[in-house]
Design a protein around this nucleic acid. Structure first.
Length: 233
DNA sequence: CCATTAATTTAGT
DNA sequence: ACTAAATTAATGG
């Protein structure tokens, strides 16, 4: 839901939520983005992009968390990754195709900037340093995801859950304690388990003193053990 | 506006 | 699959 038209006049020059890539841009280029972008916000649960839609704009996530996912034939959801702030959504879809291959939904309240895709492309072509930064972020994403899916196909359920916890702790929140941004169902969708198995393993970890779980709040009590479990599946 | 209740969603077994 | 708990929406004052 678009809820705040008043933020439309965004000055990209002194945006405090700039990406690493955008920090490299010249004043002129930032003004170009400013002319061709629009800031809005979404509420938790809102869908930002449906898979299959055209990529007319790049969405830059300024704050909040977003899930990137696809739906299988049986309508089962597979979450590809959790996207944190200061990243662009749908870059693989931009360079690989003109259609969004993934759907995006807000896990928290979120603020974003829509940037015209042609302008974005132009900046990539014109500014090598900018392109380089974008390339770095796309590659990192790709590596991260590749590793996550590798382990998912090779590990048993304990290893997968351990991986997911480590993923949240190290990559998303960079803390030992955090609050899951979504339901058990979605947690299961992220690692390809049934909801039942996912909660069962979480409860087991809690009972074994590896984690402390209170609703959606998780504290890692024994990170070494978690890593061991992750390694041995 | 607040309080109650009804309905939907989520968690745990 | 079923139950309980929690969250959200609707209703009435």
């Amino acid at each position: 839901m678009i809820s705040d038209y008043s933020t439309k006049v965004n000055s990209c020059r002194d945006c405090r939520e700039k990406s690493c890539a955008a920090a490299i841009l010249h004043v002129k280029e930032l003004d170009l983005i400013r002319e061709n972008s629009r800031a809005t916000s979404f509420k938790k649960g809102d869908i930002l992009v449906h898979a299959g839609s055209m990529t007319s704009h790049i969405i830059y996530l300024k704050s909040g968390l977003v899930k990137e996912y696809v739906k299988g034939t049986n309508d089962k959801e597979q979450i590809l990754q959790i996207v944190c702030k200061f990243t662009y959504l749908g870059l693989p879809s931009l360079f690989g195709d003109r259609v969004n291959h993934y759907s995006y939904a807000a896990l928290t309240d979120v603020t974003v900037c829509y940037i015209d895709v042609n302008i974005f492309n132009q900046l990539i072509r014109d500014n090598g340093n900018f392109a380089y930064e974008i390339l770095i972020s796309v590659s990192r994403d790709s590596l991260n995801n590749f590793h996550r899916f590798m382990s998912q196909s090779q590990k048993k359920i304990y290893g997968r859950v351990a991986d997911a916890i480590i993923y949240f702790s190290k990559i998303i929140f960079e803390k030992e304690s955090f609050e899951l941004p979504f339901t058990r169902q979605e947690f299961a969708d992220l690692i390809g388990l049934s909801r039942e198995s996912a909660t069962r393993v979480l409860t087991k970890f809690n009972d074994d003193g590896i984690l402390s779980i209170d609703g959606r709040n998780i504290v890692i009590l024994n990170p070494e053990m978690l890593i061991q479990i992750s390694k041995h599946g």
